[in-house]
Write a protein that binds this DNA or RNA. Structure first.
Lengths: 210, 210
DNA sequence: GCATTATCGCTACCTGGGTTGCGTAATTGG
DNA sequence: CCAATTACGCAACCCAGGTAGCGATAATGC
């Protein structure tokens, strides 16, 4: 999201932003990160390359903006059944990641590729501002999930001596580990196993397992 | 590791390999991934750029080779105390990652950077062969750690109905999640919390906590 | 109306990853 | 000793990310 200064001088054409982002998204989903060229995006959007660089200082910045727009808000439901709520949440997050992950892969290609997700992580490492931005995008989502855990603790569904932030890491960490490091699939059965593992020791000792 | 064909023709100068790898390592540790240029590596090693590309087809391949050489074997000790063994293992892994992670950062820079680790993950995503290679490098190490868990299950220190692979993911996943995604520090206190969380539900129900 | 400010398109350019072609040096098999 | 084979250095080149300068256009404030 480019910052807008005071409204002096010729205003930016908002349609230009739109066309660039759409062109970039389309090319990213079809070709993946490496094969997406800035010149092609500019061509397709019908703008000059310099116009594009006036808005986003690097290719990384543009791609991150595109991916951020693709991240819909994940609605959290707090039904009171912590296992069901966590399952719903993790399934949503994983589905979103898997979509980005497969970008640029031919239909039916094997699942052992981190696709765009790894490029985003690398971009965040290359540019401090992108790291901040990306973390901000996910912060709300994460805060809501952690709130879910905290609420479960308050009503006695989880042990009171839990560090909910650590518990959260143990829920989502394996997911990113598979996508970014091992390349193994992150499907619903796997997520269920992760939830099992995280919840197993998180129940109060006097609670019944279900 | 370049494959060697039949010993026909002029043999490769092994000293050339050495000099390239050393030059690349030095420049990587000082400048980080992005600021390391192939031309500079070639200059510093005293070889032509083409000689370098005869051995590693891309910059990614060269860097991965360098980092792979930096990964010493982590000796696993199976003392029978699963918590102590896991602690020892995770501390070793995290220390190794943190070294690579800080590559290219000025001394005393904040810890919120994935440094080279994210570039390696991205390289693995870009080139299928590098993905295979990197996973092979870590496979032995991982297999030993999973063996540690399996052995603890066998002697009754951990529940018999555990999926040790999933438990392993829950131990190392948060570590990579922090390094690659959130940028938060991975220090020993954090690792201890992770081990606490993973082990809490993994004990047999009749076992004493220590 | 007019100076100011900022956008936009265009062209030319720099840089670094990666390739090609060629002349030459070093080795093996015969 | 000689042919085949491979390694090496060198120079020229292509491509894509990114920059600089300039003329034209569209808005603001006075």
């Amino acid at each position: 999201m480019p910052e807008r200064g005071p409204s002096r001088g010729r205003p930016r054409d908002i349609d230009v932003d739109r066309r660039i982002l759409i062109a970039a998204r389309d090319l990213l989903l079809v070709n993946g990160y490496a094969a997406l060229s800035i010149d092609e995006v500019a061509d397709r959007a019908g703008v000059a390359k310099t116009t594009l660089y006036r808005r986003w200082p690097t290719k990384d910045h543009l791609i991150v903006a595109v991916v951020a727009l693709m991240q819909d808000d994940v609605p959290i439901l707090d039904t009171g059944d912590i296992r069901a709520d966590l399952t719903h949440y993790l399934h949503q997050v994983a589905d979103g990641l898997n979509t980005v992950r497969r970008a640029g892969l031919p239909e039916g290609a094997d699942d052992r590729s981190a696709g765009v997700v790894a490029e985003i992580a690398a971009a965040a490492a290359r540019h401090a501002d992108l790291g901040t931005l990306i973390r901000a995008v996910f912060a709300r989502r994460n805060a809501m999930a952690i709130g879910l855990l905290a609420s479960a603790v308050r009503r006695g569904a989880l042990r009171t001596d839990l560090d909910v932030a650590v518990l959260f890491d143990q829920l989502v960490g394996p997911l990113y580990y598979r996508i970014l490091v091992t390349g193994e699939p992150v499907d619903h059965p796997y997520l269920d196993l992760i939830i099992d593992g995280a919840l197993r020791g998180a129940r109060p000792s006097h609670a019944h397992p279900a």
